[in-house]
Design a protein around this nucleic acid. Structure first.
Length: 447
RNA sequence: GACCCUAUGGUCUAGCGGUUAGGACACCUCCCUUUCACGGAGGUAGCCCGGGUUCGAUUCCCGGUAGGGUCGCCA
């Protein structure tokens, strides 16, 4: 039988990083097996339902490159979708749920109480055969012992999660349910429902959760919990995907950087680890740097401009040659695109603010004399290529009898306002003779 | 409270009935260098605890501890 897996998020207004990994593992398994990856929106709770909330999920998956074979095409609940098992919004499948509830009632497997419909739950322990966790025999808890049955339809007529989840998996012919381990205990309910419907249950694979770096549960407000913050901060989707692959799964060959296609080739459910993983932002950043260095020029420019725009810079109004030359000096020097405006904003500003700590250290009487000489020597340089600038800077240092660094640091501060940045000689070439001289003069006035 | 899952450096992990327990991130030192970053060379740091099985347990079993999860007319 062809593998059919699904990712079934609830539209809560954001896509949790753990949810993203669940989607990724489902997607990997579908692509690995040549099966189908289905997106289904669990919007049974009308209060949470909004088009925007669904769009957040769709955008997140699209950004990561996790394309779905069946599911909604827009966030509109009654909108277009692809696949033969739709609609893919639970709110649009009320009829199916009604019929199933009727069936259970007529078979005596469910009953009404105080307006709600309750399912007659088995009293016996249920065996869960999990592909990741192994065989789990789960008896009832003490509370369940006291009242084992559970509500499948609220008194207002709305079906409840456990019910709709099972019915949809059943009717969409889902073969493998890959979901967070937080559902492991609930699986007995689902197994009992499948049995009541007289159909075999899908295979289950409960994957461990992602925790905060301090080991606590990652909730909505925790740093890094919402997927959209990653693209807002300038992360690359390939870095995020790669990192997520590494949480709970390993290619087992001591490599960390895994091309997606290779993950697809090698992924399997039984290799998934059984313990929770803590989210390590630093390691994600490292992978980000790895991928950032490999970007094509065009993509690099595009992401860089987006970052500047987001930070309020109008880079589009400056000459393309200048823009590209400026960005070229930044390649490989930073990891997150959100760092870029601070790193290289000096290219696009008329007035610099000097880092006060660096200014106190570099804008000294001794350095004033030195920069004045440098300014004088540079004035004669025209044109202004990096190699010539470098030679001039070094000869000036020699003339002053100081190491090059002594001259470099105040010069960098004068030209960029900062104590670190792109290669000084190259950024001077990009700024050009005029800007460089003006900035040196302005800085000298501050001494 | 009951039930379930889990346990290799700070973090992600590889691994095994006998290994100098491997890799990566982070951290520290040094080299390279105009700063930063990259790169290169080193380094600190680990099998949760207690029993049992065994000639021998990090590895298998049991117990404890710790962490996580579930027990909703939330999903």
């Amino acid at each position: 039988m062809k593998v059919r897996v699904r990712f079934a998020p609830s539209p809560t207004g954001y896509l949790h990083i753990g949810g993203a990994r669940t989607a990724l593992f489902n997607w990997l398994y579908a692509r690995h097996t040549g099966g189908k990856f289905i997106l289904r929106i669990e919007d049974t709770d009308a209060a949470r339902n909004s088009r925007e909330a669904v769009e957040v999920i769709l955008q997140g998956l699209r950004w990561l490159g996790l394309d779905w074979d069946e599911g909604p095409l827009t966030g509109e609940v009654t909108g277009p979708y692809k696949g033969d098992f739709g609609p893919y919004f639970q709110s649009q499948r009320q009829l199916q749920y009604q019929q199933r509830v009727e069936a259970l009632l007529s078979k005596g497997l469910a009953y009404e109480k105080e307006g709600a419909i309750r399912f007659k739950m088995t009293r016996e322990p249920i065996l869960i055969r999990d592909l990741v966790v192994g065989d789990v025999l789960r008896p009832l808890t003490d509370r369940e012992e006291a009242d084992p049955d559970f509500v499948i339809q609220r008194s207002d007529g709305q079906p409840v999660f456990h019910l709709v989840n099972v019915i949809d998996d059943l009717e969409m012919n889902i073969t493998h349910v890959i979901r967070g381990e937080d559902h492991l205990s609930n699986t007995t309910k689902h197994l009992a429902l499948f049995k009541a419907f007289g159909v075999p249950a899908p295979h289950y694979a409960h994957i461990p959760l992602i925790l905060n770096s301090d080991g606590t549960k990652m909730s909505k407000r925790d740093r890094g919990a919402a997927l959209n913050t990653y693209w807002e901060e300038g992360f690359l989707p390939e870095a995020v995907i790669n990192y997520l692959c590494l949480l709970g799964w390993s290619p087992k060959d001591n490599r960390e950087k895994i091309p997606l296609q290779e993950a697809v080739d090698r992924f399997d459910l039984i290799q998934i680890l059984r313990h929770n993983a803590r989210f390590d932002y630093e390691k994600l950043l490292w992978l980000q740097g790895e991928y950032a260095r490999e970007l094509t020029d065009d993509r690099f420019y595009e992401l860089a401009v987006a970052a500047f725009t987001r930070a309020g810079y109008d880079t589009r109004s400056c000459p393309l040659d200048y823009l590209k030359a400026a960005l070229d000096t930044c390649r490989g020097k930073f990891r997150l695109f959100s760092e870029l405006p601070n790193y290289a904003g000096f290219y696009f500003k008329d007035t610099l603010e000097y880092d006060p700590v660096a200014a106190a250290k570099e804008f000294t009487p001794d350095n004033k004399t030195r920069l004045q000489l440098l300014l004088q020597n540079l004035t004669s340089l025209n044109p202004f290529p990096a190699a010539e600038v470098e030679a001039k800077l070094k000869s000036t240092a020699a003339q002053l009898g100081v190491k090059v660094g002594v001259l470099v640091h105040p010069t960098r501060l004068a030209l960029t306002g900062q104590s670190s940045g792109p290669s000084l000689y190259h950024l001077m070439e990009v700024l050009g003779r005029e800007r460089t001289l003006v900035r040196l003069e302005k800085a000298l006035a501050r001494f």
